[in-house]
Structure formats: structure tokens, C-alpha cells
């Protein structure tokens, strides 16, 4: 579904990604783990067109999408819950969800999708008319994910969904990830919480300073002594 071939990305003179190759197949949950500054967020931002690759190809559903404007990729079925959530603080929960459905013209469909989001995150329903800025961090994360789903993506990118959240909320978020994949949406998950990420995904890539240093089925990586030592703290 998605293939990155030898992708290089720069921030000015700084090389953020130095030749990343990876692929995500239809229906999979693939996770990208690594330390701060390894290039995880950069990878997602490049896939969604927020950054332009200096070199290499990004092939989505058979087409090179490198450097395409973000709004066109959203229309093509890629959606992202960004790092830091990026909710519209001055808009209500409901309006935030409506924003997520910006490209969908059928109002009935939007209403049905909103019900679905509320079903997945009943807390959002309780806070429906509250401004997003007044929500807790966990609720904002739920909103960011619910909002990303409103465009009915085929490929959902999640950037650090559990960052800074209480363990109970982290649990809720990962349950939601299982639920989303159960409905057939392909997921690319970026996480610092390697333990949770590996136990909720099919395959994993390990990023270190802009390059992929390990890859394989999540179960195998979770059992690998190097991963255990570096990322699972065992």
C-alpha cells in the first residue's frame, strides 16, 4: 500500500532522514520506534506531504506521492493524528470532528461518522460542546484520533498517541488502535512506548539517527535482546 524507497529529508542543512526504505501493506499495523530525534515524526510528516523528500520515492497505491500537497493526500485516503495532537483549541469537540470531515460533502455520512467516533470514545460525546482547549491531554488525543478518522482514511498515521498520558488512558488509546485496525484501516504508528507499540502491531521498524537499523515482525523484535535492552528497558 505504501512504500518508501531510499528517502532522504533535510531540515535546512541538517539531514533528518538518510535513506529510509520501508513498506506498509494493506490491513497491517506497522510501528516505527526509536529514540527522540531519530526521525520518526519526520518520516510521517514526509509521507503526509508536510515535508518534501530531497531524494527517494514515496509510493502510495502505486503512485509516487513525494512532495504532493497534503490536502490532495488527505483526499486520497491518508490521514494523520499529529504529534502534540494539533486540535483546534478554540473550536468545540463537535466542530473539531466536523473539520476532520472537511472533504466529505454528504452530511448524513458525516453525522454517521461522528456517531462512530463518539462510540469509540464515549468521553468525547460527554464533552461534545466543550472547547477542545479545555480537554485533558488524553481527551485531546482521543479527539485528534477521532478527527483523523472522520475523513475515512485507508491509511492512518498516528504520531506518538500515548505521549505524556496516564497509563489508564494509554490503555484506552491502544484499545482504540486495535478497534480501528479491526475495521480494516491500515495503520502506521510512531511510538516512544516501544512495549505497547510492539504488542499492538504486526511489524516494526527501528529508527536511529535518520536510518532504519532493524526491522521485522513485532513479536520477534520484542524478543530481541538488543531491543529489550535499548527500548524496553529490560
Amino acid at each position: 500500500m505504501l512504500t518508501l524507497e531510499n528517502v532522504f529529508v533535510n531540515y535546512g542543512a541538517i539531514e533528518a532522514l538518510t535513506g529510509i526504505s520501508m513498506h506498509v501493506e494493506q490491513g497491517e499495523v506497522v510501528t516505527l520506534i526509536g529514540a527522540n530525534g531519530a526521525g520518526k515524526t519526520t518520516t510521517l510528516r514526509t509521507i503526509t506531504g508536510l515535508l518534501e523528500p530531497r531524494q527517494g520515492r514515496i509510493i502510495y497505491e502505486g503512485e509516487d506521492i513525494g512532495g504532493r500537497p497534503t490536502h490532495k493526500l488527505v483526499a486520497r485516503g491518508i490521514s494523520m493524528s499529529p504529534e502534540g495532537r494539533g486540535v483546534f483549541a478554540n473550536l468545540s469537540v463537535r466542530e473539531n470532528l466536523q473539520m476532520g470531515a472537511y472533504l466529505i460533502k454528504d452530511r448524513g455520512k458525516v453525522a454517521a461518522d461522528m456517531d462512530r467516533a463518539f462510540k469509540m470514545f464515549p468521553r468525547l460525546k460527554e464533552r461534545e460542546s466543550q472547547k477542545a482547549g479545555t480537554l485533558s491531554g488524553g481527551e485531546q488525543q482521543m479527539l485528534a484520533m477521532g478527527r483523523a478518522l472522520m475523513s475515512n482514511p485507508r491509511l492512518l498515521l498516528l504520531d506518538e498517541p500515548s505521549l505524556g498520558l496516564a497509563p489508564l488512558v494509554v490503555h484506552t488509546i491502544f484499545e482504540a488502535i486495535d478497534e480501528i485496525r479491526g475495521k480494516g484501516t491500515t495503520i502506521l504508528l510512531v511510538e516512544q512506548n516501544a512495549h505497547a507499540a510492539l504488542s499492538h502491531s504486526d511489524r516494526a521498524y527501528v529508527l536511529e539517527t535518520g536510518r532504519i537499523v532493524m526491522e521485522g515482525p513485532s513479536k520477534e523484535l520484542a524478543a530481541d535482546p538488543r531491543i529489550k535492552e535499548a527500548y524496553l528497558g529490560e
Binding site: 497534503t70 490536502h71 473550536l91 472537511y102 475523513s151
Partner: peptide, 18 residues
């Protein structure tokens, strides 16, 4: 609505398909 989204958060607005 899109104008307000852009003014709140440009990156998020792009991610909404705006």
C-alpha cells in the same frame, strides 16, 4: 471554517484536507 482552522493551526488545517 477553513479560514479559522488555518488561523488556529496551519499544519492541522492541511491535515484536514484544506
Amino acid at each position: 471554517r477553513a479560514m479559522r482552522a488555518v488561523s488556529f493551526n496551519l499544519q492541522s488545517a492541511k491535515l484536514m484536507g484544506i
